[in-house]
């Protein structure tokens, strides 16, 4: 890494999140003897999967100046669709495909509402958040579906590689890699950054901004549906409120990872580090037996912290640059003597 690149990283949001992660690991290790344990780490990974998967789509959505608040409800609706089908002896593969299609359609609806009518995605997805949850309620009411096929509910453990790494872990790792490559190494990702950073420039350069956005909303819904499958197989049950409140965690992860809510900035790497951070914090709270309400408050606090941190880091970087400049000037290395007139 060149010194300029090193400096850029040192004053980046990602670096800040890495530091927070280290601090969190140290603190939780001190607090609980059960934390530093391979089995616990495997558990953290399992518990973070669904959030992480959805965050992989939320990151580029934030980069492109949009947001999807309906992901928790989409997950719930998809889970209910799957539960209904699977418990009524529909072949597993067909049920899985129908579930994924449900998520994709939900995302498509969001995307079309946002782009066709030029509506703000906060408003649209706040609406569909209620709509999708309502649909889930209409389908199953307040019953809990537990009659899921064994081959599915056990997939977590049965196909485990060794005792620690499960199939969902591997799938997530692959998805994260694919997302990182797509966002940071492909032409699609490049267009996403332009569409988020300068939408008019993107349009003038032939980028189909609306199409990109619809695609990202579809990805968001699809990943939420896949997360629904993971969650269902993990919890072995489905209810209408499955996945509620998940959007808060996903957003916390994405913003804590350095994505700028004003668009144009964000990395999959940052999101993954923040995912680990939130996983560790949640594990610490579980080990410490914190009540549920307190956990939500902690997550909310993290979200606020991440937003403030963005501003503070920006200010720090500017100050550091100024100090470097002054030093160089005082040294006079690059300046010529005052011209005499």
């Amino acid at each position: 890494m060149s010194s300029r690149a090193a400096r850029r990283f040192a004053f980046s949001h990602e670096a800040f999140t890495v530091v927070l992660l280290v601090v969190a690991v140290v603190v939780v290790t001190q607090l609980s003897p059960y934390f530093l344990d391979a089995q616990n780490f495997s558990q953290i990974a399992t518990d973070s999967l669904e959030i992480g998967l959805i965050a992989l789509a939320m990151t580029p959505l934030i980069v492109v100046r949009e947001i999807d608040l309906s992901v928790g409800s989409t997950l719930g609706l998809a889970a209910v669709v799957f539960g209904e089908l699977a418990s009524h002896d529909v072949p597993l593969l067909a049920a899985v495909l129908a579930t994924v299609a449900t998520g994709a359609l939900a995302g498509l609806l969001n995307g079309l509402l946002v782009t066709r009518f030029g509506l703000s995605s906060i408003v649209v997805t706040l609406g569909t958040m209620a709509l999708f949850r309502g649909l889930a309620n209409a389908i199953v009411g307040d019953q809990t579906i537990t009659t899921l096929p064994d081959s599915f509910t056990a997939s977590d453990t049965r196909y485990a590689i060794g005792t620690l790494v499960t199939i969902p872990h591997v799938l997530f790792a692959l998805a994260a890699l694919a997302a990182a490559l797509l966002l940071h190494r492909s032409t699609v990702g490049r267009r996403i950054f332009f569409a988020g950073s300068s939408p008019d420039v993107a349009t003038h350069s032939g980028v189909r901004v609306d199409r990109l956005k619809v695609g990202l909303f579809v990805a968001s819904g699809t990943l939420a549906a896949i997360a629904a499958l993971f969650m269902t197989s993990r919890l072995q049950s489905v209810r209408a409120d499955t996945g509620s409140g998940l959007e808060l965690l996903v957003l916390t992860v994405v913003l804590l990872g350095g994505a700028d809510i004003r668009g144009g900035r964000g990395t999959i790497f940052g999101t993954l580090v923040a995912l680990a951070l939130v996983g560790v914090v949640r594990s610490g709270m579980a080990l410490g037996d914190l009540p549920d309400q307190a956990r939500v408050a902690v997550v909310g606090g993290l979200l606020l912290l991440s937003i403030c941190a963005g501003v503070a880091i920006e200010a720090l970087r500017r100050r550091a640059a100024e100090r470097r400049t002054t030093r160089r000037i005082r040294g006079g290395a690059e300046l010529r003597p005052t011209p005499t007139t």
Binding site: S186, T187, V188, R190, S197, S198, V201, R265
Partner: peptide, 29 residues
């Protein structure tokens, strides 16, 4: 500033944007 260049993104990325498909290799930068 509004329609010509994305002022926050590198010069090289800006110059390549309209012909990104041609500069890239099967969709990879």
């Amino acid at each position: 500033q509004r329609e010509g260049v994305a002022v926050e993104l590198p010069i090289a990325a800006n110059v390549a944007l309209p012909i990104l498909g041609r500069v890239a290799f099967h969709g990879w930068l």
